[in-house]
Computed example of a mutant assay.
Amino acid sequence: MTDELIHDPNGGLPRLREIMRRLRDPETGCPWDVAQDFASIAPYTIEEAHEVADAIAREAWDELKGELGDLLLQSVYHTQMAEEAGLFTFDEVANAISDKMVARHPHVFGDESNAKTPEQQVQDWERIKAAERAETAQKGVLDGVALGLPALTRAVKLQKRAARVGFDWPETDQVLDKIVEEAQELRAATDPDHRAEEFGDLLFVMANLARHLDIDPEAALRAANAKFTRRFGAIEAALAAEGRSPADSDLAEMDALWDAAKAAEKARA
């Protein structure tokens, strides 16, 4: 029966779970899969989440199905290891998130009115989450902000938590002033450790500015990376048309080609 399920193209989630169970079998499974644990798989989980975000950002809808499958595999993988260790089951994972969604949407699944703006719903969501943290003995304002988040995302989440209790600049101009201050401190830093510390401080304040401007810093940086890749590709293409590569050019020429690519993009827009 299990072999039939494994080779059933319409087997859905039960098929995926059985495949993972077989891969993790200590006697007949894959040696690499058997050797893994939560810590060794966690980086892949983060990577797959980023690849989902990347497919969405590129509107690569044909790729998104596969990337979501890769991300789903991560949940199945962690849950299989948890079942082997007697920690929890897949159904318990599904029930836990179902319970959470019902509890956090009383305006949909309870008696509350759903005549709310998205902003009001965000406030209600945060209020419910705060109550949940209190029940799990998370006493500090910053407790529960995951260490494994991308650093910029975690910075914004930490700042949002602090802002709830009034620890925040009321005006964006004050954040901009702090950026200038941190940049000056970075300029004055002399040893590598001090420079790294001041650079981190500057990034943290830049994340704060993104929060004040209602900008996702991770998304903004991904867009900047894409723009850089696109424009540098234009430099390479222009040089290749002359039988050359960037190694055969110099900064002044490449900078001029960069400006040309930038102007061409603006003209198309």
Rank of each mutant, 00 (worst) to 15 (best):
W258R: 11
L23G: 00
H50Q: 14
K100H: 09
A55T: 07
E27D: 11
I128S: 01
I179W: 09
E198Y: 06
V76P: 02
A115R: 10
A155Y: 12
I128R: 10
D193L: 12
A210M: 09
L73P: 00
N208D: 15
G12Q: 10
I6M: 13
L149K: 06
A60H: 14
D168P: 00
D168Q: 11
K227R: 14
V102N: 01
A196C: 01
I6N: 02
P14N: 04
I56Q: 11
V102G: 02
L13V: 15
A60Y: 06
A60P: 04
K178D: 11
A134H: 02
D173E: 15
R164N: 08
T117E: 04
A96F: 08
L147V: 09
A39M: 12
H107I: 02
Q36R: 15
V175Q: 09
R222Y: 07
A163L: 05
G200P: 06
T229C: 03
E119Y: 12
I128G: 00
A103P: 00
A237Y: 11
E197V: 05
F109I: 01
A240Q: 09
P118I: 04
T89N: 07
M1T: 08
R17W: 09
P170H: 11
P14S: 04
E27K: 13
D255K: 03
A260V: 11
E84V: 06
P9K: 02
H50K: 05
R211Y: 08
Q138Y: 05
P26I: 03
R58G: 00
L152F: 06
P106Y: 08
G148Q: 10
Q184Y: 13
L213P: 04
D8Y: 01
E182D: 14
E119K: 13
A252F: 03
K157A: 10
D250R: 01
D201C: 05
A151C: 03
A96Q: 09
A261S: 14
E67Q: 10
R164T: 11
D216F: 05
G233D: 07
E182A: 07
D216Y: 06
L13Q: 10
Q184N: 13
I19H: 12
N10Q: 12
A115I: 08
R187C: 01
R222W: 06
A53S: 10
D193W: 10
I235D: 00
W169P: 00
R21V: 01
A252W: 01
A115H: 11
